[in-house]
Simulated scan of single mutants.
Amino acid sequence: MGLGQGMYVLALSEHEDPLPGYAEIEAKAKAARAGIWSSEFMRPADWRRTYGTYNPLSPR
């Protein structure tokens, strides 16, 4: 299972382009409401930007 089944999202930096075809595969999964696209969620990068990082091994 993978990108085409909606099991993960592309994680790219601002200056990075996805590998050829990956954006289209994600778009098809999103249009089909497959996997994680079947509900609303916050992309991991957006979550980290809003709430900070999560590292259970990091001392607080």
Rank of each mutant, 00 (worst) to 15 (best):
G52K: 10
S13C: 01
R60W: 06
S38H: 10
I36A: 07
S38Q: 03
E24P: 12
G2N: 09
G21F: 03
R49V: 10
M7Y: 13
P20W: 11
P18R: 01
M1Q: 11
H15C: 03
Y51K: 15
I36V: 08
G6T: 00
A34N: 08
E24M: 08
R60T: 07
Q5V: 00
A23R: 03
A31W: 00
G4D: 15
R33Q: 09
L57N: 10
A29H: 07
P20S: 11
M1T: 11
S39Y: 07
S58C: 12
Y8R: 14
G4N: 13
A27G: 02
F41W: 09
N55E: 14
L12D: 02
I36K: 12
Y54A: 14
W47G: 02
R49C: 11
V9R: 04
R43Y: 10
G35M: 03
F41I: 12
E16N: 09
I25A: 07
A32G: 08
A23K: 06
G4T: 04
L12S: 03
W47A: 06
R48H: 14
P20C: 07
I36M: 15
S13L: 00
P59H: 07
E16H: 11
A34I: 00
G21W: 05
G2C: 08
L12T: 02
L3F: 02
G2Q: 15
R49W: 12
G21M: 04
A32M: 05
G21S: 07
N55F: 07
T50C: 14
Y54H: 06
P59Y: 10
A23G: 06
W47E: 13
K28T: 03
Y54V: 14
N55Q: 13
R49H: 12
G35R: 08
R33V: 00
Y22D: 02
G52T: 02
Y54E: 09
G21T: 06
E40I: 07
R33K: 14
L10G: 00
G21H: 06
N55C: 13
W37R: 06
I36N: 08
I36W: 13
I25N: 05
R43W: 06
M7K: 15
E16W: 02
G4S: 12
A11F: 04
A29Q: 05
R48F: 15
S58H: 15
F41D: 12
L10C: 08
E14D: 12
G2F: 08
A34Q: 10
A27T: 00
M42S: 07
M1Y: 13
L12A: 04
A32P: 06
G52W: 07
V9N: 10
A29F: 02
Q5T: 06
R43E: 11
A27Q: 03
A29I: 01
M7T: 08
M7N: 15
E14V: 04
I36Y: 08
D17V: 05
G6D: 01
E40A: 14
E16P: 02
A27N: 01
G52N: 14
K30V: 05
E24C: 07
L10P: 03
Y22I: 01
P18Y: 01
L57D: 05
A11N: 13
Y22V: 02
E40H: 15
R43P: 04
P20A: 09
E26F: 00
P59V: 05
R60Y: 08
A23I: 01
E40Y: 12
S38T: 01
W37A: 04
G4K: 11
A23W: 00
Y8I: 05
I25G: 04
A32T: 02
A45M: 05
P20Q: 09
L19V: 09
H15R: 14
N55P: 13
P59T: 07
D17P: 00
